[in-house]
Nucleic acid binder design. Structure first.
Lengths: 138, 138
DNA sequence: CCTCCTAAGTTGGATTTCCCAACTCACGTT
DNA sequence: AACGTGAGTTGGGAAATCCAACTTAGGAGG
C-alpha cells in the first residue's frame, strides 16, 4: 500500500523538517534576521540556512535585503506564511495545556481584553468543530 | 543566548520528530494498529515503533491490548491526543490552501451541513484571533 | 592603513538519525 | 506440518544533523 496523500502530509512536507517551525515561530515573534533566528531556536547555522532557503522556495517566506551597504537580509512572511498563524496558536495552546509545566512563559491577550483562549469553529454556523461534528464529504 | 523556552517549542519536543504527526493523523482517521499506521504513513517500522513508544510515554497515546490470543494491540488517543484535533485541522487547512494542487483529497463536512471552513476565534468575544488582534499579556 | 567587529552564511568532519530488508515471536489456520 | 498475520526487533548502509572554524562583505575605531 502506498502512503496516504493528503493535505496534512503535504503541509508536513513543507514544514515538517527539523527547525522549520521553530524558525517560523521566531519570525512571527519579529525576529526576522538570520542570527536572531539561529540564537533563539538553537538550530545549527548550516541547517537553518537550508531551511530558510526551502521555506523561501516554497513561498512561505520572502528574503528581503534591508541594507545594501553592508549587505543585510531579513526573512518576512508571505501570505502563505501569515496563514500559519493559526497553526502556531494551536501548537502553543496544546503545549500550554499538555506539556508546559508551571507558569506559562508567554500569554496572549485578545483585543477584546481577555486572555486568548482560541476556539476552532465552523465559519458558517459558528459552532465548534469537534471530531464528532465532522463527517467525510463525498 | 539560550534558545527560547515556550509552549510551541515544548509541543514540538513531543510532536516534532519525523513520523509523529503522520502517525497521529492515521489514528485520528481510525487506523489504530501498528501495521495500518506503518502502511498509511510510509514510516519505517523501527522508527514508527520508537515514535509510538514516545507518544505513549508523553501521554498522547495509550496502548491497549484488544486481543490476548493472539496478542494484538491498538493505539488510542488520550485526552491530550484528542486535543490535537485542532492542530490537525489547521495543518489540513493550510495544506489545502497553500500546498495541495488540484482537487482536495479529503473534505470534511460540519454537522451544520456546510463544508468545514475552520476559523480560530477568541472564546470570550467570538471575534477572529488574527496576529493584529493579539498583544503580549504582562 | 590596520585591526577588530558584525551579519550572513559555508565548509569539513564527527555524530545521530533514518531507511530497508530480513528476522523473531506468538499465535491462528489449513 | 506448513503457512499466514500482527507487532515488533536487528544489523548495516545512507542521509541528516551537529559543531566549530572559516569566509565574505563591509563598518568603526585608532
Amino acid at each position: 500500500m502506498s502512503p496516504r496523500t493528503c493535505s496534512i502530509a503535504n503541509a508536513l512536507e513543507v514544514l515538517g523538517e527539523r527547525w522549520s517551525l521553530p524558525a517560523l515561530r521566531e519570525i512571527f515573534f519579529g525576529n526576522t534576521r538570520f542570527d536572531q533566528i539561529a540564537a533563539h531556536t538553537g538550530a545549527s547555522r548550516d541547517v537553518l540556512a537550508a531551511r530558510l532557503k526551502k521555506l523561501v522556495a516554497c513561498g512561505v517566506l520572502e528574503k528581503r535585503r534591508y541594507s545594501d551597504h553592508p549587505p543585510r537580509f531579513e526573512y518576512l512572511l508571505t501570505d502563505s506564511g501569515r496563514a500559519l498563524h493559526n497553526l502556531m496558536l494551536m501548537l502553543k495552546e496544546w503545549g500550554d495545556a499538555y506539556v508546559t509545566e508551571g507558569p506559562l512563559p508567554l500569554v496572549w491577550q485578545h483585543s477584546c481584553g481577555h486572555v486568548l483562549e482560541p476556539r476552532v469553529v465552523c465559519a458558517h454556523c459558528g459552532e465548534e468543530a469537534t471530531p464528532e461534528s465532522l463527517t467525510r464529504a463525498p
